[in-house]
Design a binder for these strands. Structure first.
Lengths: 285, 285
DNA sequence: AATTCGTCTGAATTAGATATTCCAAGACGA
DNA sequence: TCGTCTTGGAATATCTAATTCAGACGAATT
C-alpha cells in the first residue's frame, strides 16, 4: 500500500505529535526528499527520536525506509504523462525550434514505420539475402539520395552481400546491363520521377531482376514499376526541415530493413556474425 | 535525466573501478534500495569512498541522492510498463528485434542529445555561420563517417556556406594547408584516434582555424585538440546494431546543429531562406 | 487524595552511514 | 628518468539514524 495512504488511514488514532508529523508529510511529501529526520523534527519543533518512532510505528524499518517509499510513490504518481521518455525530454527542451525538431522527426519516422508493413520489410530483407547468395545487389540514388544508398550499400557489404553502388545513372546502366535473375536493384528516388532511373528500372525488370524502389509516399512512375516498393513519409512547411525529416525517415526505414536482414532468419544470423568477425580480424591488427 | 541513462552514457569514459560500480548498478538497480554505500563497496570489493566519489562525479550530491534518484526512476519505469500495455503489445507484435531497434535508437539519440548542451550546438552553429561569412568550412571523415560528413557538407552548401569535403586524409591535408583564421574544420572520427586526422587537426589549429570534432563520448586524442567537441553516445552488444545506433545518434546530432544554424539567428534565417530559393530556381525549370 | 501503571516525549547516547582528507601507487608526458 | 596528474583506498570527520533512559502527564485503582 502506498505509504501516504497508510499514514492517512492511521492518522485518526495518533497522538498529537504524531499527527503533526503525519500532516506535514501528507502536505509536503515532495519536500521529504531533502529532509533528514533531524530537519523534519526541527521544522515541527519536536525531537528527532519522535520522528523515528513515528516511522517505526507505521511499520517501516526506519526513517529512510519511509522516505524512499514516499519518493517512489510520488514518482509513480506523477508518471501519468511521462509516457515516452524521449518525447518528454524533447518537449521540455523545446526552445528555439530545435526541440520541435525531435518531435517532427519522431513523427516522420513513425509514419514511415506504419506505411511499410513488417511483411514488406521482411520481403526486402529476404530479397537481399537471396541476392547475396545467388547474385548481386545493385544500388543507385541521385542527389541527396546517393548518400543513403551508399551507406546502405556499405552495410550490406559488411554482411558479405556483394553490392554494387553507383553515384550516377550512366555507370549504373553499365553495371546493370548484364544483370539477370537472382539480382536485386534498389533505386532511391525521393520523387520517383527521374526518367533515367525509370528506364534503368524497366530494363532491369526485363532482365528478370527484382526491382525495389524507395520513394516518397506518393504515386509515382518509379514506384509503379517495382516488385517491392518502400515508402517514406515526411512533411514540413519549412524548406530546410523537409529534407532533414525525409532523410531521417529514410534512414529509419533502412535501419529496419537492415536489422530484419540481420535477425530475421536464424541461419542467416549466424552466418552474418561470422562474416563480421572476419571483417574485424582484417581490420584489427 | 534518468540516472540510469546518465550512468550508461558516461560508462565508456570511466576508469575500471568506476565501471564496475556502473555495471553493478545498471544490472541490479532494484537492489540499490537496500544497500548502503559501504555494502555496495563490499559487494564489489572496493572502498566505500570510491562509491561516494563515483556518485559525486556523476553530479549527484552524494550516495543517498543517487540511491533516491534510482529508486524514483525504477518506480516510474514499473508504472510505465503497467499502464502502457498497448504500446508494449504493439512492440511485441513486430517481433524479431526490429521493435526493440526503435527503442534502442531513441535511447541513443536521447543520450546524445543530453550530453551535448544546447550551448554547444549553438556554438557550433555560430562557428559555421561565421565561417560561411568570412572563410570556409572543411570537413572530413573516414570510413563510415565520410557519409555523414558528406551529407552535412551538402546541407551546408545549400545554405550558401562554402564547404570543402574530402574523402581522404591526403586530399584534406592539401585543402587545409592554406587555411587560416576564420576557417572551421569539422573532423568526424568515431574513436577519435586516427593519427592522420589528429595531425591535420593540430596543424589546422596552428593556422588559427577553429577545430570542431565529432567523436564517440570517450576521452580520445582528437577530442582533446578541439575548440568545440561534439559527442555521440550509442551502445549495443550486437556488432551489427552498434553502428546503426552510432549513425542514428550522429545523424540526430547533426540535424540539431543544422536546425540551430537555420533558426538560431533571425538575420541568418532570412538570408538562408533566400539562398534556398535561389537554389530552387536553378533546379526548377 | 495518593499511588500506581502505562504511555508519550525528548535529551542524551550509541551505532551507523556518509563525506572529506590525505597519501601511495600507477599512468602519462616531457 | 623525472615531475605531474590521476586514481583508489585508509583514516578521519561529519552527519544521520536508532536506542536508551528518564521525566511528564493522565487514567485507573485503592
Amino acid at each position: 500500500m502506498s505509504p501516504l495512504v497508510k499514514i492517512r488511514s492511521e492518522r485518526d488514532q495518533m497522538s498529537a505529535v504524531e499527527r503533526r508529523i503525519a500532516d506535514f508529510i501528507l502536505e509536503n511529501a515532495q519536500l521529504l526528499r531533502d529532509y533528514s529526520s533531524q530537519q523534519l523534527a526541527n521544522a515541527l519543533g519536536i525531537s528527532q527520536s519522535s520522528v523515528v518512532k513515528f516511522t517505526q510505528k507505521l511499520g517501516f524499518k526506519g526513517y529512510p525506509d519511509l522516505k524512499y517509499s514516499v519518493g517512489e510513490a510520488i514518482a509513480r504518481a506523477d508518471n501519468g504523462d511521462a509516457t515516452h521518455v524521449a518525447t518528454k525530454a524533447a518537449e521540455a527542451h523545446d526552445e528555439s525550434g530545435v526541440g520541435s525538431l525531435w518531435r517532427r522527426k519522431s513523427e516522420a519516422e513513425e509514419e514511415t514505420r506504419l506505411i511499410n508493413t513488417p511483411d514488406t520489410l521482411q520481403a526486402v530483407a529476404d530479397a537481399m539475402a537471396t541476392a547475396g547468395a545467388k547474385g548481386k545487389v545493385f544500388m543507385i540514388g541521385l542527389g541527396d539520395d546517393d548518400i543513403y544508398a551508399r551507406s546502405f550499400a556499405l552495410r550490406l557489404s559488411l554482411l558479405g552481400i556483394p553490392t554494387v553502388h553507383n553515384f550516377d545513372a550512366a555507370r549504373m546502366a553499365a553495371s546493370v546491363s548484364a544483370a539477370g535473375a537472382g539480382d536485386v536493384l534498389l533505386v532511391f528516388s525521393e520523387h520517383g520521377n527521374h526518367p533515367a532511373l525509370c528506364k534503368i528500372g524497366r530494363f532491369f525488370r526485363e532482365r528478370r531482376g527484382r526491382l525495389i524502389t524507395v520513394t516518397r509516399h506518393t504515386s509515382n512512375p518509379l514506384r509503379a514499376l517495382a516488385d517491392i516498393a518502400l515508402l517514406v513519409s515526411a512533411h514540413d512547411d519549412r524548406p530546410y526541415i523537409q529534407p532533414v525529416l525525409y532523410q531521417s525517415a529514410l534512414q529509419h526505414l533502412l535501419d529496419g530493413v537492415f536489422v530484419q536482414l540481420c535477425e530475421g532468419d536464424e541461419q542467416r544470423h549466424v552466418q552474418l556474425l561470422s562474416n563480421l568477425e572476419r571483417v574485424q580480424q582484417m581490420l584489427d591488427p
